[in-house]
Design a protein around this nucleic acid. Sequence first.
DNA 1: GAAAACATGTAACCGGTTACATGATTCT
DNA 2: AGAATCATGTAACCGGTTACATGTTTTC
Lengths: 195, 195
Amino acid sequence: MSLRYALLALLEVGPLTGYDLQKQFAVSVGHVWHAPDSQIYPELRKMEADGLIEAEVIPWGNQGRKRQYHATEAGVRTFVDWMNAPLSYSRVRDPAHLRAAYLEWATPDAARGFLRGHIRHHREQLDQWVAELHAIDSLTNPMLVRRLAVTAEKDRRKTVAFKRFTYEGLIAQAENEIAWANRGLEILGEFDSPE
Amino acid sequence: MSLRYALLALLEVGPLTGYDLQKQFAVSVGHVWHAPDSQIYPELRKMEADGLIEAEVIPWGNQGRKRQYHATEAGVRTFVDWMNAPLSYSRVRDPAHLRAAYLEWATPDAARGFLRGHIRHHREQLDQWVAELHAIDSLTNPMLVRRLAVTAEKDRRKTVAFKRFTYEGLIAQAENEIAWANRGLEILGEFDSPE
DNA sequence: GAAAACATGTAACCGGTTACATGATTCT
DNA sequence: AGAATCATGTAACCGGTTACATGTTTTC
């Protein structure tokens, strides 16, 4: 159910089309919440039906049309209420750690492949997040710039601080996973080349 | 789709009823993969239909009956194949970090509550995992003991090593989240009591 | 004129969540 | 006799995934 809050978060800053939102999900918000376009467009319609957002149909070229959405008062309220409500945690479902727990069933090669894949995956995430952190610091993230433009001067530092905080957390997560997998490779080595 | 592999992992060790499996999901495997009974029983039936497991109907008391499942040859093969296949990673969907990214919308109290809740949640997880790690080291985890009983002597160290490895990883994750949330509380403090 | 980008969806499926539902056995 | 535990499900719903589907506009 967080998709709608992720969408609302983006729409708090200013009106966007489904396509704009979709692109944001490929970069900024997408770093913490992924959603494909096939989910975004129907969700926007539902949110519109629920009165959280409103669309303005804008002509685009000769025949083209696009729907530009903006948050309504109710939408802002809903978003703020969610931000102030306690977060509910879903139960653990962690394929990588599930596999690790039974790794003695894999061949040594497959086990090594799994751990290297884990490192590769988190290295890729890490690279993205580090780049995003730089974009925050250098103010080259367009959504953040737009956000700051509509934020009172006194709240700007805070806004930037939370964005940094988020990405620092994600970076620490990725580094942690990489360190864990490397430790796993060491353990594998102990059993592969025993002496 | 990992539920069936989690179930197979448990059934590799020896026959269990749906109820036995369900209890394991409340403790050991449940630490990495949660599943409610309403999901376990139907999944077992599907696995039986797919020939991965077989049930033996055992009388229980005067009229009671229970179905004790064991992995078939095909079941073992399927499990081993999964263990040797590359793991596919699903896209990020992280409610806590999503919220953190827009935490300036929450009241200072709600923000503090969110971070404290994050710490509480991961502290609870941490406690469970630390206890589990002790149960591994002291060989008081019944499933592990059963597992070791059917494992060749030379593979026992390896089996225990991977279990430890898994829980060390989970513990590091939890500690990481707690450290992150504490850092968030510090940041909050800077903005709440500025001078 | 072709390719890239803009724009917006539908549909089938699947795994997981929540709530409901029931009955037997064993322990105290 | 009552509580705890053992035992096994069904059903409605919902969020997310994957595949499919289509047309316009802008840029090169």
